[in-house]
């Protein structure tokens, strides 16, 4: 019952539509940027003396990788933080938390239902977004072989090429892997949400923490901190695009992300179960 209620509330809210609109706008901008970049690189205006890019490099699959890469490291975690942030704090600020807790339903069930619906909606969002970028890539650019190089998007550490069919399979694997990565910002914001009385504050704080941590985890000076930041491994799914998938690394980093997510969820639940509602 709690699950159906949370699912219906999400369906009736404006949030999914705002997210969808933002993602569509993002894809349009990416398509424009990708086209101009490809034109610069292959249209006789190449500045670099030693270059590896050519016309076959720029196809719909490369576009999908580019578009998904930036979305998965910036946009989608922000949306995940937003979704988590509004859960408890949103109910509290709207005054509906007493309505939920005035039923013979445990706080644990309320909390975990919210987590389950938010997590499932994020996974659906990740999947839909992958379909969107692949579709746009197919329609406007056309698919082909997926060629990746070290450095570019930091996806691979040696030049490589995946056939179109293999690349599409990899996109399919990336769906659950990237969805799992989104659990960390989601659960962090859910945890923050239990502390906050205002949805705006909870979302703002969650997004800020995510952005700060993601910058810190990329900066060399914080090497010692990196293992303790979930943002350091948030892009672990990129390994799935390598010719030889580094499974042990993927399991290791996925485990680390899950550990962070479980810890955030545990602390959030612990807090929510012991919290007074004034």
């Amino acid at each position: 019952m709690s699950l159906s209620l949370e699912a219906l509330k999400l369906r009736r809210s404006r949030r999914p539509w705002v997210v969808l609109a933002a993602l569509v706008l993002y894809v349009i901008l990416m398509l424009f940027g990708f086209a101009t970049y490809a034109e610069t690189e292959t249209g006789g205006n190449v500045e670099f003396r030693y270059t590896f890019e050519n016309e076959s490099y720029f196809n719909g699959l490369t576009f999908a990788v580019y578009a998904f890469y930036f979305a998965a490291l910036l946009l989608l975690p922000v949306f995940a933080s937003t979704e988590g942030g509004v859960q408890i704090a949103g109910e509290r600020s709207a005054g509906t938390l007493p309505l939920l807790l005035s039923r013979p339903v445990s706080r644990q069930r309320v909390f975990l239902s919210k987590f389950a619906v938010a997590g499932a909606s994020l996974a659906m969002g990740v999947g839909l977004f992958l379909v969107l970028v692949l579709g746009v890539g197919l329609v406007f650019v056309g698919w082909g072989e997926l060629r990746l190089y070290p450095g570019v998007l930091q996806m691979t550490d040696r030049p490589q090429s995946l056939s179109q069919a293999e690349a599409l399979v990899r996109f399919l694997w990336v769906w659950p892997a990237a969805s799992l990565a989104m659990l960390a910002p989601l659960t962090l914001s859910l945890l923050i949400s239990t502390w906050s009385r205002s949805a705006v504050n909870a979302v703002g704080l969650s997004v800020s923490i995510y952005l700060v941590l993601s910058v810190i985890s990329e900066i060399h000076f914080f090497r010692e901190l990196r293992p303790f930041l979930f943002t350091s491994t948030l892009g672990y799914w990129r390994g799935l695009f390598r010719e030889d998938i580094p499974w042990s690394q993927i399991f290791r980093e996925a485990s680390r992300l899950l550990a962070f997510s479980a810890a955030f969820l545990g602390v959030g639940l612990w807090r929510f179960r012991r919290q007074e509602e004034r």
Partner: peptide, 15 residues
């Protein structure tokens, strides 16, 4: 405090 997006019927069914 109720959920503005839900109908009366839905409140009575789901809550």
């Amino acid at each position: 405090a109720l959920y503005p997006g839900l109908t009366a019927n839905e409140h009575l069914t789901l809550l």
